[in-house]
Design a protein around this nucleic acid. Structure first.
Lengths: 226, 226, 226, 226
DNA sequence: TGCTAAGCGAGACGGTACGTCCCGTCTTAAT
DNA sequence: ATTAAGACGGGACGTACCGTCTCGCTTAGCA
């Protein structure tokens, strides 16, 4: 569902939906092949078999278009609710990683760069690219807080940023994507820092692990023993 | 001293050093006034009172030029060595914040975006913009490790990234710069998570605080009591 | 009464006559203000307070519209019938001049240019713009021929073209409009060339001139004596 | 030798002469195939295998370009100097006809239409398209005047316009190009009107004709006897 | 008098061409 | 030999306008 930030007016000839799709598709293709620099509206129009004005009618510029194209493809997995805080929060990184993995890092940065100077655009970027993953992890965090697994007074937003920023940072600055063991170590640091009783969380996780064989799709954070 | 990555050949007519300076100056001015998008070599050459080829002779392109101009202006403070791990590491955020504060966030992201697709350029970016602050904080971390204040097995690089990424993330995505109290809460989380004995660190810090009045320039992380 | 070449169908909602008038008026205004180049259907529709399709429903395109608008305003004076061939034919130039004077020369040429490639349109142009004046002068010529004032075998159409072309040429290529004395000299050349007995015509004209004071509105060609 | 009204500057990279030629050639081709309306700078650039800016660097716009292209192809024959005024002036029409014949009438009118509103351009049009033929005929006229073959006081410029306008008019308004017999009749009218002694001219012409067989390339006006 | 359908008005569409900015390169003259 | 600088060839931009299509409303003519 390619969402144009320029809503199609009610009166007059209706837009050709095929063009919407073709443009989004062309944008994604070019971005994949030639990077952000290759995404000129000229090239997109050419590949989509349409004209530049047809694109401008839908999106005000390159950044809006790319944002729409990328948001269209974003798929933020819902983190599991296993009752095991350690495991669930361990999945948090995967949520972010999965979200950002669809996008080539240099495209992500270029896109943000183009959004940055325009408040409206920056807002849209945050709303479409950043927030979905952030909110997904936020829900997990809320459950942990509700269970009393985190210290009282822990700053929910800050914690979200600490997870998100780390993934984002790595997504941008390479050192490749966050490796699995790195993610585990990071979670350990964060949970030792934020949990009301870290040892209890580990205990609980292990109990669950023993109880039933790993359910598919649910990974446990195998935190190293203290 | 604007460092031209293109060394001037020995033979032939020597380069006009005034042009080096004028170009760097013009670049910084324009970047400040019109943002990254305004920095076209055309505009820089015009403002510097020279021609485009003269710039290309010195830097291979816009990104190199801007990198040189911005690196020229970067100032990374050396974090203090007070013996108080809590305080010293508390300063870490300030190091990053100070480093990034010289640069307008949207320029930072745009610059990185342009560097990203080119390995050589990305390396130069990391080396010039990211590493100085990272290494400065790294030295503080090493002292803490040497003192045995951190748990054995703590991942030094990961910790650096967790600090750096948070500042960088905020520098880019706004929610303004990291507020002081947020930084403190973040440090608390990180140190609770990474310290061998967090309570001891707090204790030690408070002892030092009582002992002598705050030395100027050294702020203490006043962690909330458990 | 702006004549729409597209007849309104009988059934259905009838056309709004106000739009006919408004469009013609807008066309003439714009043509006067901004020349032919300024007459885009877009602009006409805007000024007439209507939409482009409403215009297309009435005229097939810009040329048709302008032709209609200009024809609407054309006013070809009827050349006098004084019995004095010299005088009457002397008026011929004025007929053409007057006919073309209503239209700015550059509009005239542009309009014709747009009509030229399309036979149907060119025919309409000739019929509406060229022929009226041509026929008016033709009638004068016929009277002269009937009176036997022209040599037998003189090519009526060619003569008409020689008068018309000269005025048209000057109207287009400036050297300003044909000055009065130039017109007289031209008539002298043409009549000396075409008359059966030029001297007799001059004689007759002068006789009439002596007989009665100049009637208003009738100028005599005061041909220089041989 | 495609003459660019934009003179190539002395300094800097010199223009690619191949582009000059290719653009002129493409312009003429398109004009021939698709008429004036088809000559968009876009199309010319495409066909010439170059870019729009390259054209704009040489000519300020479509009209200048077409003017240059057409002038490039204009070939005005030099009217003969046979000593026979009747013959020589008889050739005058051919000079004009030949000059205009290279250009499709509707292109001629469209070109002029675009030149008309701009004084500079109109001047250039007159200078490049109209004057060459006009001057050639003017030289013939001057010889006739020098020989005393024309009446004293005949308006040289007016006569030139009467010849030129007739051809031009026909070239534009079709009724096809001036037919040979029409031209002869027109010349007869003009010379009867302008000659000091028309009968003597005819006499002289016929004497020459008897004397030597028609020289190739020289046609005699066989004026009908009164 | 109420219903139907043709034609109307207007708005927006898809697309061509425009004239301009900037890029990266080449050429000449000067040092 | 290499500089400084001007201009080049070309890619892409964002806009004006074209000619067309679609909508919803109006209105004449038929039931």
């Amino acid at each position: 569902m390619p969402e144009s930030p320029r809503p199609a007016p009610k009166a007059g000839r209706p837009r050709d939906r095929h063009i919407d799709r073709a443009v989004i598709a062309a944008t994604l293709e070019i971005q994949e092949e030639a990077g952000y620099a290759g995404v000129s509206l000229e090239a997109v129009a050419r590949r989509a078999g349409t004209s530049r004005p047809a694109i401008y009618r839908r999106w005000p510029g390159r950044a809006h278009l790319l944002l729409a194209a990328i948001a269209d493809r974003l798929d933020v997995p819902e983190p599991p609710d296993t009752g095991c805080t350690l495991c669930d929060i361990g999945e948090s990184f995967n949520v972010f990683v999965a979200a950002y993995r669809t996008i080539r890092p240099e495209v992500l940065s270029a896109l943000y760069a183009e959004c940055a100077p325009d408040p409206e655009l920056r807002g849209r970027y945050l709303r479409t690219i950043v927030e979905p993953a952030r909110q997904a992890v936020g829900r997990t965090l809320d459950r942990a807080i509700a269970r009393g697994d985190l210290r009282a007074g822990v700053d929910r937003e800050l914690l979200l940023d600490m997870v998100g920023s780390l993934v984002h940072y790595r997504a941008m600055f390479g050192r490749a994507h966050l490796a699995d063991d790195e993610a585990e170590r990071a979670i350990e640091v964060l949970l030792r820092g934020a949990a009301a009783d870290y040892a209890a969380l580990v205990e609980h996780s292990e109990a669950l692990e023993r109880e039933h064989l790993d359910r598919p799709g649910v990974r446990h954070a195998r935190a190293s023993r203290p």
